[in-house]
Design a protein around this nucleic acid. Structure first.
Length: 360
DNA sequence: TAGGCCATCTGGTCCT
DNA sequence: AGGACCAGATGGCCTA
């Protein structure tokens, strides 16, 4: 019955998601009766015709047969014992004529279409963002919230690099990227950078936590922005300064992370992508302590907080590696299957590019 | 099966 | 009046 209200074929599949609307059983009528009773219970105050409230429940009631009765007013709900009630002021309600009903219906459909388009635009923008954050996979897309978190971390990490004029070691870099991310995403990013989260945290604990949010002291062990293909053969292939940088990074990287580590580092081949130029002009006042959303405190307590060099909070590192109890399952033992994961750090961000990007 | 994520609808608010 | 934006509700899909 209610599907008649939305007789546009293209909308029907969507409408059918609302199961109660599709079912033409007798319970529909009782539901509508309940809605009518609810209307009468609420009274005029919420059902002023001037109100925007032209929602489905009212439209449903109107279309359920009240259209035939042109004299039916909203005030007339059948409760005759309400004569003492003071007359409501304000514009008198207009009857829901079929023409008005049709206009309402069209307006709602147009609004739905606009909203759908708006959300699609938002999603395509998010897709674009997914492509420029450090880890991109066509098959294993980051969720929206994780994409935003990773993008925030990415911006912050690059801004710190530019601010300090130093290159961070890959461990610190990954840690920065993974701050506040869920465990699966942490593993994904770590996998993109060929790091097992558990192992890089172990390394971190051994070296002492150098990382601090407000005063990062990145070391120069390696430069993670130039080579995403970490195998020696990949690093040695090709020529040019780009590959030279790759090679230097890979050598340093391998020296750091391939000895005494698990075979998990022999991960699949990752395709390099160019990172977009990044602009940092001091506007990144955001602090890593600030979370993107409240649930960063609520459900994503995976952040690292290395507050000193003595590993006093190194347990937090294990929290990231294994995940806190009672939260999302940890997958630190095995990296997820990265089929077509891309890392976007082929080159160092140049200031010219940064400015160009920012002023576009 | 529960939980996470997502798309969509919907009504409210603000703005032009 | 209508559009943009937002948040809540709802149901589907997927995965552990």
């Amino acid at each position: 019955m209610l599907t008649r209200l939305f007789n546009e074929p293209s909308l029907l599949p969507d409408m059918q998601k609302f199961g109660g609307w599709v079912d033409d059983s007798g319970s529909e009528d009782s539901k509508i009766k309940d809605e009518e009773q609810e209307r009468c219970r609420i009274g005029d105050e919420d059902l002023d015709e001037g109100d925007v409230k032209d929602g489905s429940s009212r439209a449903q009631s109107e279309i359920a047969g009240e259209d035939d009765d042109e004299d039916v007013d909203e005030d007339d709900c059948g409760d005759d014992g309400d004569e003492d009630r003071p007359k409501k002021r304000g514009p008198k309600k207009r009857k829901m004529t079929p023409a008005r009903l049709e206009r309402t219906k069209v307006r709602r459909q147009k609004a739905n279409t606009r909203e759908r388009t708006r959300m699609h635009d938002l999603n395509s923008a998010l897709d674009n963002l997914r492509k420029v954050v450090p880890c991109y996979s066509k098959t294993q897309k980051l969720s929206k919230i994780e994409t935003l978190r990773l993008a925030k971390n990415y911006i912050w990490a690059l801004s710190e690099i530019l601010r300090n004029g130093k290159r961070p070691d890959v461990v610190s870099y990954v840690q920065t990227l993974c701050k506040g991310l869920s465990q699966p995403t942490t593993n994904l990013v770590a996998g993109c950078l060929q790091l097992n989260s558990r192992n890089f945290l172990t390394e971190q604990c051994q070296e002492g936590a150098r990382f601090h949010v407000s005063n990062p002291s990145f070391s120069m062990h390696a430069y993670p922005y130039q080579c995403s293909r970490l195998s020696s053969t990949q690093c040695q292939s090709g020529s040019s300064a780009h590959n030279l940088r790759n090679h230097s990074f890979c050598s340093a990287y391998e020296a750091l992370y391939t000895k005494g580590t698990s075979p998990e580092y022999n991960s699949p081949d990752y395709e390099s992508h160019h990172s977009p130029p990044v602009c940092v002009n001091g506007n990144f006042a955001l602090r890593q302590q600030e979370s993107l959303s409240p649930d960063a405190e609520r459900g994503y307590q995976y952040s690292l907080h290395y507050t000193n060099l003595h590993g006093s909070r190194s347990s937090a590192a294990h929290g990231l590696a294994y995940g806190p109890p009672g939260t999302r399952s940890a997958h630190s033992e095995n990296l997820p299957p990265f089929h077509d994961v891309h890392v976007h750090h082929d080159r160092a961000p140049a200031y010219e590019e940064l400015n160009a990007f920012f002023h576009n």
